[in-house]
Amino acid sequence: MLSSNTKIIRKKLPWQELDEKIVILSPVTRMSHELNETSSWIWKEIEQEIPFEKLLCQLIDNFEVDGQVAGQDLQDILRILHDKGLIEIND
C-alpha cells in the first residue's frame, strides 16, 4: 500500500515513444518493455520525483476516472513497473 507521500520517480533508462506507446530498454535485464497508454502517461509524469497523491490527482484529472478505482489501478501499475526495475518508489 503506497502512502500519499510516497515518492515516485522513473529510473534513467533509454526509452522511445512510438504511436503514443513508450518502449523502455532495461540494460540490467537486457529486456525491452512496451507500456500501454496509461502506463506511458505515468512514465512521462514521473520524470521528476512526484508524491503518489499528486500523481493520482493528475491521473484522475487526465483520464476522468473514479478516484477509488484509479488509486488501486495506479498502485498496481507502479508495483509492476517497480518489479520490472523501471522506477523507484521511496517511502
Binding site: Q16, L18, D19, K21, I22, V23, L25, P27, V28, R30, S32, E34
Partner: peptide, 20 residues
C-alpha cells in the same frame, strides 16, 4: 504496430551489448 516492431528490431541487433 510500431512499438512492437521497434522492440523486435532492437532485440535482433546482434552482439551490441548496449548494457555494457
Amino acid at each position: 504496430g510500431a512499438a512492437q516492431a521497434y522492440r523486435k528490431f532492437i532485440s535482433s541487433c546482434a552482439n551490441v551489448f548496449w548494457n555494457e
